[in-house]
Amino acid sequence: MTEFKLDLSNGELLIGGKRAVLHCNHYNTFLQRTLVDALGDKMVEVQIKISQKINTEMLRNLTQGIEDKKSAIEKIFSALGLGILDLNDLENGRSTVSNSHYALNCYYKFGNQKEGVCLFATGYVRAAAEILTGQKKDFFETRCISIDPDQNEMCVFEVRT
């Protein structure tokens, strides 16, 4: 189910009918930072929303007909290389990510961050909530490894009320 299919004749790496592309931590971190540095919070919102949209579509395709959708969605997150997602507390408006790709790389490259940097993960958690609960929920990252790895063992996403 988390199988990627490489179609060499079209240069496509497919998952759930969507095109995935390989990129590295340096690019991911730099691109995100460039967009936010140039335009501020507006781009934070844009990145979360686009992640939510594209992940909802992909996860819907991938979890169709699957009984344990929750663990499938967690596994896909790791298969994308983003860390370990735990959705066990999702019903209570909370989820966590350990070893967040974006958080660790932002921290190593730029030091302690002021705010959470896991924008893609935030959108992914929102997509997971939409699929698993049938409702759109505005999750935000309330703790991030990148802010202080000694204080925050993992990134935490919660519904802001």
Partner: peptide
């Protein structure tokens, strides 16, 4: 490096 397989559309 650390790679990811995020959608190109993102």
């Amino acid at each position: 490096v650390f790679l990811t397989k995020i959608q190109g559309d993102y």
